[in-house]
């Protein structure tokens, strides 16, 4: 109806490279449309890098990958001012964060100090180095990944910092049929390299502006708030969703509606996005020390809460 052909084109383009993960691709595109950042919590080797790279390639945007290690310094991310002896001036060498799509791989491996440098830059959309500020590119999206299994020697992002990510998704392994197709395909070293851009940067900025205009009916707003209230009231959660989280859900729902060929939101948009948008913003009850993936448990709790909130008729 609207801009759908273009959004669909992005998705199709990425799907040429990543098979069988259309939901994750849709969410990534939605995240970009909503000007948010994406956190992928998943096991290694499912295509996180490929996804980020393909997204960047489809939009003809620049793409940088930062592999986080435990000895990474903030300057490695943000950049550093180098003194030119000849010119007697400092020259700023931009770090990898000055790209459109930044893949922050294994963000939980690095020290909290380094993590916070990235996160602050994400939220402020600018970098301050040596008392100078440098704005970041637009559109700007950080795709961070965390390995949920290996906790040894890691610094998992604390809940208060997770709030900065619009949604947290999981890609997961492909199903058997798809995996076979992947194995059958001729392997290319950098599959995303072969992609052609389908959208320009200006068009993407345009789309991002259009998201604001998507209509959210009053009753759906009440439904959304109902969900938020339910998380705050629930006994299983110490901390419910904050207002920032409610805003995030609202924005994401509008973006999803746009991605699906509508200029109005449906309850389905809100219901589908609630687990990915809200589950990393809530804190499970203390004393419920969960061995294993507490992220899954949080998602389960949010799903349960969704089942108890009635949809307006």
């Amino acid at each position: 109806m609207y801009e759908t052909p273009k959004i669909q084109a992005i998705r199709d383009n990425i799907e040429r490279v990543i098979k069988g993960k259309s939901q994750a691709i849709e969410l990534a595109v939605v995240c970009m449309l909503a000007r948010g950042h994406l956190l992928i919590e998943d096991v290694p080797g499912v295509g996180k890098t490929t996804l980020a790279h393909s997204l960047a390639r489809s939009l003809d945007c620049s793409f940088k990958r930062i592999q986080f290690t435990s000895d990474l310094l903030p300057s490695d991310i943000l950049g550093v001012s180098i003194f030119h002896r000849q010119k007697q001036t400092f020259e700023f060498m931009a770090g990898p964060i000055f790209a459109n799509v930044v893949l922050a791989d294994e963000i939980n491996r690095t020290t909290p100090k380094t993590q916070s440098s990235l996160l602050e830059a994400m939220s402020e959309a600018q970098v301050s180095v040596d008392s100078r500020t440098y704005p970041l590119r637009q559109p700007f999206m950080v795709i961070a990944t965390q390995n949920p299994i290996e906790y040894h020697g890691t610094f998992p992002l604390p809940e208060s910092q997770l709030d900065r990510f619009l949604m947290r998704i999981r890609i997961g392994y492909p199903d058997q049929v798809e995996e076979k197709k992947i194995l059958d395909r001729p392997q290319s070293l950098h599959p995303a390299e072969d992609l052609q851009p389908v959208l320009t940067v200006e068009e993407m900025l345009d789309l991002q502006n259009t998201v604001e205009k998507v209509r959210l009916d009053d009753s759906l707003m009440n439904y959304l708030l109902g969900i938020i209230m339910a998380t705050r009231r629930s006994d299983l959660l110490t901390l419910g969703v904050s207002t920032r989280g409610a805003l995030a859900l609202c924005k994401a729902a509008k973006a999803l509606a746009l991605a699906r060929d509508r200029d109005y939101c449906l309850p389905d948009d809100i219901k589908e996005l609630a687990p990915v948008v809200l589950s990393h913003r809530v804190m499970l009850n203390r004393g419920q020390g969960f061995k294993g993936r507490s992220s899954e448990h949080a998602e389960r709790v949010v799903q349960d809460i969704l089942e108890t909130v009635p949809i307006p008729l």
Binding site: L266, D268, E307, T308, I311
Partner: peptide, 9 residues
């Protein structure tokens, strides 16, 4: 229809 089902669901 469950109260928490969306129309499309």
């Amino acid at each position: 229809k469950n109260p928490s089902d969306t129309p499309l669901e």
